[in-house]
Amino acid sequence: MWGGDRLDNYVEQLRKERGLNQEEFAKAIRVSRQTVSAIENGKYNPSLDLAFIISDFFGKTIEEIFIYKGGADK
């Protein structure tokens, strides 16, 4: 529900490349700093909406930032 082990992301790496701290990045994409932290730590998977906002912010596609590791629950 919160996150899952099936999704990796490069949000932290991309954020650091742009010289932003979590607070600044959170403000730019209009979420709380805790949400950014949870996404970066893999504790929370963002909604599709937010995933698009993040990919838009970094000028990349969703697939370039969020990596699906596969393996749906049975």
Partner: peptide, 11 residues
């Protein structure tokens, strides 16, 4: 506004 509409906070 951010805190209220934050999707993680909503969940």
């Amino acid at each position: 506004d951010i805190e209220v509409n934050d999707e993680l906070n909503i969940i």
